[in-house]
C-alpha cells in the first residue's frame, strides 16, 4: 500500500510522471465513452431501482474485462478474427436494442406477469451490457496496455477515474433516455458505428488469412 502511495506521489511530483498521468487520464476518459453509452442505453428501460444495479454490473464487467485483456494483450493479439467476432457480437447487441426501441411494449403483451409488464428484465439488460463490454474492451485493449506501461500508479489512477466517469455518464444518459426516448436512437447509431468500425477492421485483419 505504501509503495502505491509513494508511486502516486512520485507521479505527481516528476514531469515524466505528470505527463504519463495526464496521458492516462485523457485516454481513460475517452475510452469510458462507448461503455457509458451502451450501459446507459441498456439500463434506460429498466425501473429506477434496477437501473442502478444494471449500471453497477456494467461498470464491474467493463473494469474486469479491461484488466483481463490488458494482462493477456500479447496472447489475444495472436488470435486472428477476434476483432471481427467482437464487432459481430456488438452488432447483435445493437439489433436487440433496436428491437426493444421499436417494440417497447413487446413483452408487456404476453401473460408473463407483472415483472414482464415492465419490459426488459435486469438479467436481459445485464447480458446485453456484458456482451457489449467484452466487444468494446477488446477494441480498446491495445490502447490500455500501451499507455503509460512504465507508470503503474498512473494506470491505476486512470482506471479508477474511468470507473467513476462510466458510472456518472451512464446514470446521466440512462435518465435522459428514459425521459426523451427518441435520443436512444442517437445512442444506438453511435454504438452501431463502433460495431461497424470493428467489423471493418476485423475483416481487413482476417482477409489475408482467408485469401479473399
Amino acid at each position: 500500500m505504501n509503495d502505491i502511495i509513494n508511486e502516486i506521489l512520485k507521479a505527481l511530483t516528476t514531469p515524466d510522471g505528470l505527463a504519463a498521468l495526464f496521458q492516462v487520464i485523457m485516454i481513460d476518459l475517452v475510452l469510458a465513452g462507448d461503455n457509458a453509452i451502451v450501459i446507459g442505453l441498456a439500463a434506460a428501460s429498466l425501473p429506477p431501482q434496477q437501473r442502478s444495479r444494471a449500471i453497477l454490473i456494467g461498470i464491474i464487467a467493463a473494469t474486469v474485462m479491461r484488466i483481463a485483456f490488458a494482462i493477456f494483450t500479447i496472447e489475444l493479439l495472436e488470435i486472428a478474427g477476434l476483432m471481427l467476432a467482437g464487432g459481430v457480437l456488438l452488432l447483435w447487441v445493437c439489433w436487440k436494442m433496436w428491437r426493444e426501441l421499436r417494440n417497447p411494449s413487446h413483452s408487456a403483451e404476453g401473460d408473463i406477469g407483472a415483472a414482464a409488464a415492465k419490459g426488459k428484465t435486469l438479467a436481459q439488460a445485464a447480458w446485453q451490457i456484458v456482451v457489449a463490454d467484452i466487444s468494446m474492451s477488446l477494441d480498446n485493449v491495445l490502447a490500455v496496455a500501451g499507455a503509460a506501461r512504465e507508470h503503474p500508479a498512473a494506470l491505476i489512477f486512470g482506471l479508477g477515474l474511468s470507473i467513476v466517469m462510466m458510472g456518472v455518464a451512464a446514470t446521466f444518459i440512462a435518465r435522459l433516455l428514459e425521459r426523451h426516448r427518441w435520443i436512444a436512437y442517437v445512442g444506438l447509431v453511435i454504438i452501431l458505428y463502433v460495431a461497424g468500425d470493428m467489423v471493418y477492421r476485423g475483416f481487413v485483419e482476417v482477409r489475408p488469412i482467408l485469401k479473399i
Binding site: L29, V30, L31, A32, G33, D34, A36, I37, G40, V168, A169, F172, I173, L176, I183, V186, G187, I190, Y193, V194
Partner: peptide, 10 residues
C-alpha cells in the same frame, strides 16, 4: 455528456 461520449468515440 452524450455528445462528449460521442465525440470521444469518433
Amino acid at each position: 455528456m452524450l455528445v462528449g461520449c460521442a465525440a470521444a468515440i469518433l
